[in-house]
Nucleic acid binder design. Structure first.
Lengths: 122, 122
DNA sequence: GTCATGAGCAACCTCTTAGTTGCATGTAAC
DNA sequence: GTTACATGCAACTAAGAGGTTGCTCATGAC
């Protein structure tokens, strides 16, 4: 990976450069998963069974969603007895937040430069 | 499953409450689309043909991606002669940025409250 | 020990997505 | 008026996502 360091170095990044970012968006791009994240944020660590109670879905479906969140680094589980307590990974969540901020700042920057360029009369 | 029947109450939002947010994440959850957004941000309005030049994809594939972005309100096109000039919708983009900030702030808030709760001795 | 609960695994189904190809259409250019 | 370029539309394929069912395994409660 030639990325991830201090200088975001946006420039003409290739599609591959976004391969690290995309999964996070993908993970958040589902209402059910957003709901799970929300619940984990507000109610604290919950078992799969508890999380399932809040949805019209099967336990298996919820499990899969949790695994997607885990894959994106947004959630993690710890075994506790016969339960598995899922929680939002605060650190990763903060990272994600900073990521989102960096990206949107990048957009803003690019759009501002673009506007300046266009308004300068080309 | 006592859920899902409730009204659109904020706060402990139901999955449906995220139905408006999710599409934005979904649209951004693809490396190719992120790349397109990036190019449109940095290079300004481009035709489909130009955008296609930057990828190994077919023009049709690029068109579909653009339509997804359009569906999420992130991009829009204006006909110019025989071309269609696609550009990032700056206003919507700013809205999206604020949306992301609101969501992440919500996470942070929830996580902070949760941490305080846990550390207070349960 | 027995029973109920919480979870893992695997096979299967269906709908969507990402991508293609082929052909038709409108507009510029010469 | 041809010719070339920029798109649009439709049908089709392949793979992945979201979801279910059925069965098995571990653990906690009684």
């Amino acid at each position: 990976m030639t990325r991830a360091t201090a200088g975001p170095r946006p420039g003409r990044s290739s599609p591959a450069a976004f391969a690290h970012v995309a999964p996070v968006f993908t993970a958040l791009g589902d209402p059910t998963r957003l709901h799970l994240v929300s619940r984990l944020c507000h109610e604290g660590p919950l078992s799969i069974a508890r999380l399932t109670d809040g949805t019209p879905l099967t336990r298996q479906a919820v499990t899969k969603h949790l695994q997607v969140l885990e894959g994106a680094g947004l959630a993690a589980a710890v075994r506790e007895g016969r339960e598995q307590r899922w929680r939002v990974d605060a650190r990763r969540m903060a990272e994600t937040r900073r990521l989102l901020e960096r990206i949107s700042a990048q957009w803003d920057g690019a759009l501002a430069r673009l506007a300046a360029f266009v308004e300068s009369g080309r």
